[in-house]
């Protein structure tokens, strides 16, 4: 048997990978360290190497303490709002994208390609570009400080439609014909064949969309003024504002909130990882 040799290139690869992961992980580790120490220690010494005992206290504070006047923006409440935004955005986008792509790919509509290119140009117009008119519409519809107002304007973009269109076009024509001969009408074909076939694609889209929705900052900041509607990503800002006050800043609580805000997207990616890779690379048609 051959002895495994330590090759220079292998060592080099690993060194690069280790440096890369440290670069990504160190800020998170620093957050974890700081949130485990009393705020006073953090104030005096800054980040250190010792690990304190305040983890549980800070966790409870982060989840249950509110800052605002109404006392509605507890961490728990903000986490809930963020989850609704993340799931609502991802699911809404997938459902809308799939249905639009289905219509464009499988039905001979007179203006199908025109409609597709109209939808496609919305890629050039993300919410940030059309934020003023969007705000005005949402405001006039009375949807400020509502979940609909939070989710619906974000859904209106072409990414999911585009991905599903490309995916549907790769499904062999013969499968559609076989289904026609088997007597599957448009609705049956969609639910019996297209949706189950697309499940890895749906999972991949779900991850991308959930993380995108979760990380939204500008739009929630614009349209939620009610503390009870704050999302986590927007709410952390509220806490760091207090760093400028004249009391000891709540480093522990703010850092803990930041960690909590990172966690759900990470978990989703970890759980769906194998589906994600499958959905974007493999086709078992």
């Amino acid at each position: 048997m051959q002895k495994p040799r330590l090759r220079l290139s292998t060592v080099l690869d690993h060194v690069i990978l280790i440096i890369g992961s440290l670069f990504m992980m160190l800020p998170v580790l620093m957050l974890l360290q700081m949130t485990s120490m009393p705020d006073l220690v953090n104030m005096k010494n800054g980040p250190g190497l010792s690990f304190g005992s305040q983890l549980d206290d800070n966790f409870l504070k982060a989840m249950l303490k509110a800052d605002g006047f109404a006392g509605a923006n507890t961490g728990l409440n903000m986490l809930w709002n963020s989850l609704i935004l993340g799931f609502g955005f991802a699911i809404g986008k997938i459902v809308l994208g799939m249905m639009a792509a289905y219509a464009i790919v499988y039905f001979r509509l007179r203006f199908a390609s025109f409609a597709f290119w109209m939808i496609f140009t919305t890629l050039l117009l993300p919410l940030e570009v059309r934020i003023l008119p969007s705000y005005e519409i949402v405001q006039k519809l009375g949807m400020l400080n509502t979940y609909q107002g939070l989710i619906v304007p974000l859904i209106a973009s072409a990414t999911a439609t585009f991905f599903f269109r490309q995916y549907f076009r790769s499904i062999p024509e013969e499968l559609v014909e076989a289904a026609r001969i088997d007597g599957a009408g448009p609705v049956k074909f969609f639910f019996d064949i297209l949706v189950p076939l697309s499940r890895t694609m749906v999972a991949a889209m779900f991850i991308i969309m959930f993380v995108y929705g979760w990380n939204q900052y500008l739009w929630p900041t614009m349209i939620t003024t009610d503390e009870g509607m704050f999302t986590l990503v927007r709410g952390i800002k509220q806490i760091t504002q207090m760093l400028e006050g004249n009391q000891i800043p709540e480093y522990g609580r703010a850092n803990m909130l930041a960690l909590i805000a990172i966690l759900p997207p990470v978990l989703i990616v970890v759980f769906f990882q194998s589906w994600f890779v499958k959905g974007l690379t493999e086709s078992d048609k």
Binding site: P172, E174, L175, E177, A178, A179, R180, I181, D182, G183, A184, I193, P196, L197, R199, D284, K285
Partner: peptide, 20 residues
């Protein structure tokens, strides 16, 4: 008449089985 109602059955070159 729709393919489904023509009382026919077809076998395709690449089988066209439903993969799922």
């Amino acid at each position: 008449i729709d393919p489904a109602d023509r009382d026919i059955a077809m076998v395709f070159q690449n089988y066209a089985l439903y993969p799922h």
